[in-house]
Amino acid sequence: MSFLNSLISGISLGSIYAIIALGYTMVYGIAKMLNFAHGDVIMVGAYICFFAVSRFSLPPLLGVLVAVVVCTILGMTIEKLAYAPLRSAPSLAVLITAIGVSYFLQNAALLLWSPNPKVFPDFFKSVGRDGEAHTGLALGPLRISYVTLVTILVCLAIMAALTFFINNGKLGKAMRACSEDKDAARLMGINVNTTISATFAIGSGLAAIAGVLYMSAYPTLVPTTGSMPGIKAFTAAVFGGIGSIPGAFLGGLLLGVIEIFAKAYISTQLSDAVVFAVLIVVLLVKPSGLLGKVIREKV
């Protein structure tokens, strides 16, 4: 039973990684850049939701909505100000700019919201008829907290919506076209800049949702909160094959499950090392990730 419990919490953590990894992989697929500031957008989203709920006492769902809107605007602003002028610059220059943006967000958060950790409120607590607080379901020895359940469901919903949108929506088609060939897409009358901007908007909005879910599971909020899940989700995106949306989903889930199992059965302190070791082994066997496209080199 502890195996099943671990599996469920692994899938839950993996769902969060998957949502963040979607942001990385979509931006990479279209703009061909590693957006290192993505992890910090998660942090901003979590702070916005925290203040919306605890300061302005909005209902949690509205708080999440405010966080999503703010992060979407933030993502588009970052793209316009910092990344758009560098469209034709070498990829390393864009990478360093993304790092600069990441430093900027962290330090702005440090100034605005102080380095003192904030305890994120528990949205998923219901008080039963007996007056006791319930935080989850108990099916025999199996315990599933509401946070876990909601996280997994939200991730599945996002995944389904995104797949439908990318495959059928007009903007989704434009995104696929841009990631194949920007110049050809431009010739077909697709506005490449708007498409890239929309990709950042979607990725950042998802990051806000991921931030709230992550904070519900691990409720200590500090300005550097975003960096570790950011790195892990980036790893997950590469694990599944960067640029591929199902890959990000699969990579995220696997990474979460491996991390929780490593914590449960190997060692808590070495769990990160185990996760990264698995990543290395996978990349050696399949150098373009689990579901990544193999690009043939032409001579």
Binding site: A82, T97, G100, N107, A108
Partner: peptide
Amino acid sequence: MLVYAIVLI
């Protein structure tokens, strides 16, 4: 550090 980040960008 904020100034550092802005200078970098």
